[in-house]
């Protein structure tokens, strides 16, 4: 059985139309799954629906067979699903260290939280260096590292990362993907949404193509990369292999 399951999920914002028009998806435990698709396909909305930031109108989201719909985001985090949004969502006026403390808001054991903060400061020397500076003074890459550090503090069962490469220079993107690979090696399940489809699929075992709010295709990541039709439709712009994501 998959760890995270979506069954015919419909979701949308406010009183607007459905952005997700019936997604069914299985995310296997311990694997990295990459979701690709054009802008407006509903990739980010899907992650937000899983984590409770967007209300699921019908269908079901399950973790380990247990229903997540209608839980609050904090309750879903308690079940072990952590979301790293694309805008990084640090607290701009708090110091880096305060941001890490906030990351552990759901951890009641103060000693445990303290040791995990020390651990991430060791893992990310750049954050240790700037720990007392306000988060808004960090560069884009450093902010992405800080949000990933934040996720590492809670040790989620499922880590969902939305467009980690957005707005980052290629070599920084590389570092970010290295961190995500490192998470996976510890056995963490990762669900990745990535505009830079090639890069994202290369870092994943499983791939899923989303378009117009529903799944069009899924399969092993390397078979998606090799599939000429998907290549044409969804990877075409990056066919020369340089892999610089376009926001277009």
């Amino acid at each position: 059985m998959a760890l995270l399951e979506l069954r015919d999920v419909h979701a949308g914002y406010g009183s607007g139309p459905d952005i997700l028009t019936g997604i069914t998806l299985d995310v296997d435990e311990g694997a990295t799954t990459c979701v690709i698709g054009p802008n407006g396909a509903g990739k980010s909305t899907m992650l937000k629906a899983i984590v409770g930031l967007v209300r699921v109108r019908s269908g079901e989201v399950r973790l380990d067979g247990q229903r997540l719909n209608d839980l609050r985001p904090d309750q879903i985090l308690d079940r072990g699903v952590c979301f790293v949004p694309t805008d990084r969502s640090l607290f701009p006026e708090m110091s880096v260290r305060e941001n890490l403390v906030m990351a552990g808001y759901s951890i009641d054991d103060k000693a445990l939280l303290g040791s995990r903060i020390d651990e991430v400061l060791e893992m990310f020397p750049v954050l240790a260096e700037r720990r007392s500076e306000r988060a808004r003074t960090l560069s884009g890459g450093q902010q992405q590292m800080a949000t990933l550090a934040r996720a590492w503090i809670v040790r989620p069962r499922v880590l969902m990362v939305d467009e980690p490469s957005m707005g980052l220079a290629p070599q920084v993107t590389e570092q970010v993907f290295d961190v995500i690979r490192g998470f996976r090696e510890t056995g963490m399940t990762v669900l990745l949404v990535e505009q830079n489809a090639r890069k994202g699929l290369e870092c994943s075992q499983w791939g899923c193509v989303l378009d117009l709010g529903a799944k069009r295709f899924d399969g092993p990541a390397d078979s998606i990369l090799a599939n000429p039709e998907i290549h044409e439709l969804y990877l075409g712009r990056q066919a020369n292999g340089n892999g610089s994501a376009s926001d277009g």
Partner: peptide, 25 residues
Amino acid sequence: TRPGYAIRATMQDRAAAQIVGVNVD
């Protein structure tokens, strides 16, 4: 205090506060 941190976090970014597990309600 913990609720104090949560209030400041919510003031700075409500969605981010929800993401780190604050019951913003």
